[in-house]
């Protein structure tokens, strides 16, 4: 049974720490990063919108694509170093939420972090992508806090009933 750890910018260290502590099989950890093509695509489109500059070699989209691939590899390296034990790495490209769900198929556990507005806990404490992943994951999900979890005292009092 593998443990898939979703490595996303900003929130990944907590996921790696949780996987190290809680993975059912220490040897079967997969570090997953998904690159969304929309960022290079937007740069590409902005260049295409500049009417008359027909020089494909200046298109910033291609430079961004290379930079995105390099940054994904660096991120997975950093995550593997933090994990400090053998693991495999998985780099995918596409719609982030769908790729994560697809990569989790057949896994024993999926680890991800809360990445929404954590000042007001409620539906929005999960971003749209993590919401989709939590709803559609084909395996058990371990949802961790990127920072230490707030204590019970922060829960607001229950609404008064009439």
């Amino acid at each position: 049974m593998t443990t898939v750890v979703w490595i996303a910018e900003g929130t990944w260290p907590a996921c790696v720490d949780a996987a190290r502590a809680l993975a059912p099989e220490p040897a079967g950890i997969v570090l997953l990063h998904v690159t969304a093509p929309d960022v290079p695509g937007a740069a590409c489109g902005a260049y295409a919108g500049l009417l008359g500059r027909g020089r494909p070699e200046r298109d910033p989209g291609a430079r961004l694509e290379r930079a995105a691939a390099a940054s994904a590899a660096e991120l997975l390296d950093a995550a593997a170093a933090r994990l400090g034990r053998p693991c495999s790495r998985l780099e995918r490209t596409g719609r982030v939420e769908r790729e994560v769900v697809a990569a989790a198929e057949g896994a024993g556990l999926l680890v991800l972090a809360r990445d929404g507005d954590r000042n007001r806990l409620g539906p929005r404490s999960l971003g749209p992508e993590s919401r989709f992943v939590v709803d559609h994951a084909p395996c058990p999900v371990l949802l961790v806090w990127p920072e230490p979890a707030p204590d019970v005292g922060t829960i607001p009092p229950p609404p008064r009933r009439p």
């Binding site: 969304a36 093509p37 695509g41 590409c44 719609r95």
Partner: peptide
């Protein structure tokens, strides 16, 4: 072209 993956709705 390869920017067709851009989420148009967003």
């Amino acid at each position: 072209e390869h920017d067709t993956d851009v989420d148009l709705r967003e």
